[in-house]
Design a binder for these strands. Structure first.
Lengths: 188, 188
DNA sequence: CTTGACTGTGAACGCTCGTTCACATATACT
DNA sequence: AGTATATGTGAACGAGCGTTCACAGTCAAG
């Protein structure tokens, strides 16, 4: 019914990264009165598409930043996506826990190929000095940075590649963990 | 110098997903006058941290939604990240081209394992009816949905798994492309 | 046709916005 | 000490905000 208006609203939001004012919505929707906008906004609020904060300003619903989650590949695409939506997610929110400590790195080399991280992939890492046995980490071993599995048995720590052509790395001097890998992102 | 203020500003933005008003910034920064805020905002604008739109409203710089890109793993972490930043990216913008036609699917099975897409990975797909030879697609073959390499030689089209345990799929009745895989996302 | 529910117009209102004064205080330089 | 610069306070201002009137046109139900 009002999907046309909603699309225009989302379009504005994606372009300007903020909600429009009522005056802006007048021209956006083609109204000549702010009251028409006001009534439309009330409908949006009822439907949960938008809400208002304590200042009366419009706040975009999470769906403005999200993309639909459709379940498993085998299930395929529902004929009417809108009716089948199991969920929507915001990729940023989904991946990033600690905003200030998150960084992206490009993977160089195939030493983690058996973990299905290939040359050129992007990894999202979170800065930290500690890791658990089995986590994939970025570490500084004797002055060289590398990405490997972190291994810890008792008080012995070392790094292990996920590629049988490479050998485990036992630190000669030191092994400092710089970050742990939280996600892998590959773009085609 | 003003990084403390900047952090608070970014904190507010991440929480409320909008820029604060000058009055809100007064309590946010601990000022008792809007003029102090006004002068601070002018500095922010000079530094390019924020800008103003045609209504005088504050607009967040792209960096508010972005996370730092640090180059290659081997380069490791610069001691002072702020000075070494080659770039920042917004994961959403980086991955998503057509907002309305993008969906997330969870991968089921290991038929694309040799393309380093494993069971449980998430794939970001874009709806389309056409694909080029070699692209990874979601397709409906004779009534069953699957994710495979799309192959096309001349006017012959079929699907190929990236797993030697599986055989190519030649359609008996039809092969309809539903979407192409644009990115793979794996979260640890 | 009459009635009532919608939907849009146009104008008015109070409120908060961002801006801009004059003035006070602190810090640094001569 | 004296002066300039930076930084904060407090008050005032016009402008645009979101809200809310009264009123006109449209459409479906009775």
């Amino acid at each position: 019914m009002y999907n046309n208006y909603k699309d225009k609203l989302i379009g504005f939001y994606n372009k300007d990264r903020r909600m429009p004012t009522y005056t802006e919505m007048m021209s956006l929707f083609g109204f000549k009165s702010k009251n028409a906008v006001s009534r439309l906004v009330d409908k949006f609020i009822e439907e949960g598409i938008v809400s208002k904060d304590h200042l009366g300003r419009l706040v975009a619903d999470v769906s403005f930043n999200s993309i639909p989650m459709l379940g498993y590949v085998k299930a395929g695409f529902p004929t009417d996506v809108a009716e089948e939506l199991s969920d929507t997610i915001n990729i940023d929110d989904y991946l990033i826990n600690k905003k200030g400590d998150s960084y992206m790195l490009t993977v160089d080399g195939d030493s983690m190929i058996d973990a299905h991280i290939t040359d050129g992939d992007m990894v999202l890492v979170e800065k930290t000095n500690t890791a658990k046995d089995g986590q994939i980490v970025i570490a500084d071993v004797d002055g060289e940075f590398t990405m490997k599995y972190f291994r810890k048995k008792g008080d012995k720590i070392w790094l292990e590649p996920a590629n049988k052509d490479f050998k485990p790395i036992h630190p000669k001097m030191y092994l400092n963990i710089t970050a742990v890998v939280k996600a892998v992102i590959r773009k085609y």
